[in-house]
């Protein structure tokens, strides 16, 4: 088991290197550099730019540039922002990432609390009115784009009804402790639902079909023939098996939530990684773009790794050798 996990982590390393090469290549292949926009400024001697390029190493061969960048990244030195002068990327990211993680966790918890019970109910009562309702909601959740749902939510619940704030993370900077927590949650409701919508739809459908599948299996019939109660049949024998594929799915959800957050945060002007990312793209702030991209990649890899590890814990049939 431990060996299995260690081996999975070792596989992780070459994947990470591949990922960093791709990120670097994409950034290098993009036309222009931070000086491109200013090159036509007639008051500045083009030679000055060249000197600066030389100083920053932008004229070095690409592999050399990659190695320099990768070593720095590995050391945790994400470089300096080219747009927010004098700010290092690490501090820019770290002040935003917390908000994104909060939002992601909020959306994930919401997804699970809603999707799993409804999925179970639908499987227990297939073709019931609630099952049909859930199916309809599922199609809706998958079909409606994030940003569109977000805009509608703002219009209805923030502007018309005024129940929830339309943007930001906090409105009263003077409160602390539990009151601050509640204020943050209040701000997270609309973006959280928006972000979790697609996942909720997906999990609900998965849960329904998994539970239905397991309920029809031979070992469930055995459990019933042993005289196990309905509770035990559902919550012990069925759920434990039905959750195995769901857990795998959750690993991927990790990455899906982070990338979903990019759009959702933009819609709600929520100051997280997503808004930082979009702004950096507009500003051609390459060090920030590259760091966030790499971070998203790492998050997805970690998500998959966690899924694998959970999977090996819940399914004894997984072989570790």
């Amino acid at each position: 088991m431990h060996k299995y996990i260690i081996r999975r982590i070792l596989v992780f390393i070459p994947m990470l290197i591949m990922l960093s090469i791709i990120v670097f290549a994409l950034a290098t292949a993009a036309p222009g550099d931070p000086f491109t926009g200013k090159i036509l400024d007639p008051t500045v001697d083009p030679e000055v730019f060249n000197e600066q390029r030389e100083a920053l190493g932008l004229n070095d061969p690409i592999p050399v540039q990659y190695l320099r960048w990768a070593t720095a990244m590995a050391k945790g030195d994400f470089g300096e922002s080219m747009y927010y002068k004098g700010r290092d990327v690490a501090s820019l990211i770290s002040e935003r990432i917390v908000n994104t993680v909060y939002l992601g966790v909020f959306a994930l918890v919401l997804t699970l609390i809603v999707a799993i019970p409804i999925g179970i109910y639908s499987a227990k009562n297939p073709y019931s009115p609630l099952d049909y309702g859930a199916t309809t909601f599922g199609f809706f959740g998958l079909a409606v784009p994030n940003f569109f749902f977000g805009l509608i939510a703002i219009y209805v619940f923030a502007i018309k009804l005024g129940w929830f704030p339309a943007q930001g993370t906090i409105s009263n900077i003077h409160v602390t402790g539990f009151a601050e927590f509640l204020d943050r949650i209040h701000h997270m409701v609309l973006p959280g639902i928006t972000l979790g919508l697609a996942g909720t739809a997906t999990y609900m459908r998965y849960m329904r079909s998994e539970v239905l599948d397991v309920l029809g299996s031979d070992y469930i019939r055995t459990a019933k023939a042993k005289g196990m109660s309905d509770r035990s049949v559902m919550y012990k024998h069925t759920l434990r098996n039905a959750m195995i594929p769901i857990i795998t799915l959750m690993g991927f959800e990790f990455g899906a939530l982070l990338s979903g957050a990019i759009i959702t945060e933009q819609v709600f002007s929520y100051p997280g990684l997503g808004t930082l990312f979009i702004n950096s793209i507009t500003n051609r702030d390459y060090p920030v773009i590259m760091s966030i991209t790499l971070l998203l990649g790492v998050a997805i890899l970690i998500g998959n790794l966690l899924a694998d590890i959970f999977y090996s814990i819940v399914d004894p049939r997984i072989r570790y050798d």
């Binding site: 070992y219 019939r221 042993k226 005289g227 434990r240 098996n241």
Partner: peptide, 25 residues
């Protein structure tokens, strides 16, 4: 009432031993 009968007064064995036991317990 049936859960008290099954497994206690009447027990049952099935055809497929490979799938009749729960794989995760």
């Amino acid at each position: 009432q049936m859960t008290k009968i099954r497994g206690n007064d009447i027990a049952m064995i099935f055809q497929e031993p490979m799938t009749a036991l729960n794989p995760v317990f």
